[in-house]
Amino acid sequence: MKIAEKINKASLAQWGKSLKYSLHLIVHPFDGFWDLIHEKRGSMAAANTILVLMLLIKVWKVQFTNFMFILYIPEEFNILMCLAEAVIPLAIGCVSNWCLTTLFDGKGTLKNIYMGVCYSLAPYVLLQLPMIFLSNIVTLEEGVFWSYLNSFTYIWCGLLMLCAMMMIHDYTLGKALLAAIATAVGMLVIIFIILLFFSLISDGFAYFISLYKEIAFRFY
């Protein structure tokens, strides 16, 4: 009952509208990202939808693309790893970007950054899905187009992310590029800290476990 109330017609329409907005955004990135944040044309629901679709297509891409382009070996494929490949860098990237831009007077909040990144993934959803079909109807020689299209998707997404950073934080291009590099460095630092943290924790646990074993062996 509660859920049904929440998903009323108006919010559904709002979701549809904000999702449709991504189509406008990917071809008009500058105005698009400005309005996304400042005119509230985007929504978290739509951003999440795009991310989920992107993850789904990522898995499908490995599974259903013709073996000429991506060799799918079932016994070596792990869906969780495949998802983690996309989700973990995105999450760390968002956090790292937010950490740095708050220090260097960026205007965006973490929510804004997340929304911007998710909307930037829209070309991936739009292009990679037909490319799965395409890969199954082309020959190896025609496959060059597939490869070009593949690279093109990534470049498009990357440029959109750069635009998103410029518009969300109100940066100039130079500053945005600098921030992108700093974000990458920040990501490495975060990963380093995570690893350090886990290794310390496990060492700590190991200490207590060995302590317990020592005592246990003494008394039994």
Binding site: F67, M68, L71, I137, T139, L140, E141, G143
Partner: peptide, 17 residues
């Protein structure tokens, strides 16, 4: 396809198509 021979597969596929 069973032995991942993309080149020959492509040839066969082209003719089949």
């Amino acid at each position: 396809e069973a032995k991942y021979d993309a080149e020959n597969y492509s040839k066969a596929y082209k003719l089949w198509r």
